[in-house]
């Protein structure tokens, strides 16, 4: 049975992904901030067929606590086959532009905490010579745009960090997966008007499970975002700076 560690486990995408692994009978360890929601999710995964579902609370910004929390998780699971890092906040771009502390806070939550978690977990996987590190980045990290470049910068940093990690860990049999969802209909995006580009969390989860199985390096979810971003990245900066994206 696969041993799965999920960080940011109560996020909509993580929850949908956990449910898919639960129905395959996985051992699952959940980390997130809200204890009540974690307890409900653990019960839910058990009903769906998880071999075990353990929980612990973790605030992604409490970086000093990572080693002990992660060691407990690894010991409880008895090793790790798959890690999914799914926590994040959708930064308020306008507010960040007026508030340095908020900007740095968003960058800590969306980038530094991920880098800190991966530093610890990468060393563990390197040592055990196997495992998948699956991390939710974003299409927003592919090019900076005025509407959300604080969030985009953090996600871009994560994507580049993962490229380096993949390069380093490949020879150790460790799979590093960069997940780049587009617009997803989650509570995080409740305030947005939805159009045809929006996908449901379970659609993203299905793509994540398949990308883990097929040992893919980078996936855009749904797949057609690859082509949208291909076009967006190809626009010359001289022109791009004049666009209102």
């Amino acid at each position: 049975m696969q041993k799965l560690l999920i960080i940011g486990a109560t996020s909509a995408i993580a929850k949908a992904t956990a449910r898919r692994f639960a129905s395959q009978g996985a051992h699952i360890y959940l980390l997130a901030r809200d204890a009540a929601r974690l307890a409900d999710l653990a019960a839910d995964l058990t009903v769906r067929g998880a071999a075990s579902a353990h929980v612990a609370t973790l605030d992604a910004n409490a970086i000093a606590e990572y080693p002990s929390v992660l060691n407990t998780a690894i010991q409880t699971l008895g090793g790790i086959d798959i890690v999914l890092i799914a926590h994040g906040t959708l930064s308020n771009q306008n507010a960040c532009e007026q508030d340095i502390n908020l900007t740095l806070q968003e960058f800590t939550t969306n980038a530094l905490s991920v880098i800190a978690l991966l530093t610890h977990l990468a060393n563990y996987c390197e040592q055990q010579q196997h495992g998948t590190l699956a991390v939710i980045s974003s299409v927003a990290g592919d090019r900076g745009r005025q509407s959300n470049y604080i969030y985009g910068t953090a996600k871009g940093a994560v994507s580049i960090f993962l490229q380096g990690l993949r390069n380093r860990l490949h020879k150790h049999g460790v799979h590093v997966l960069t997940i780049k969802p587009g617009f997803v209909n989650t509570p995080m995006t409740a305030a947005f008007k939805k159009g045809i580009l929006w996908a449901e969390p379970d659609t993203i989860a299905a793509g994540i499970v398949m990308a883990i199985e097929k040992q893919r390096d980078v996936v855009y979810l749904p797949f057609w975002w690859r082509y949208i971003l291909l076009i967006i990245r190809a626009i010359p900066e001289r022109l791009f700076k004049r666009l209102s994206l």
Binding site: A12, D40, L41, A43, D44, V47, R48, P187
Partner: peptide, 19 residues
């Protein structure tokens, strides 16, 4: 819609508790 957890199931009786 976000209160969507299956909380307990008894396979002997078919009794399910859910949100």
């Amino acid at each position: 819609q976000q209160l969507d957890a299956l909380l307990a199931f008894n396979p002997a009786t078919g009794q399910l508790r859910c949100n």
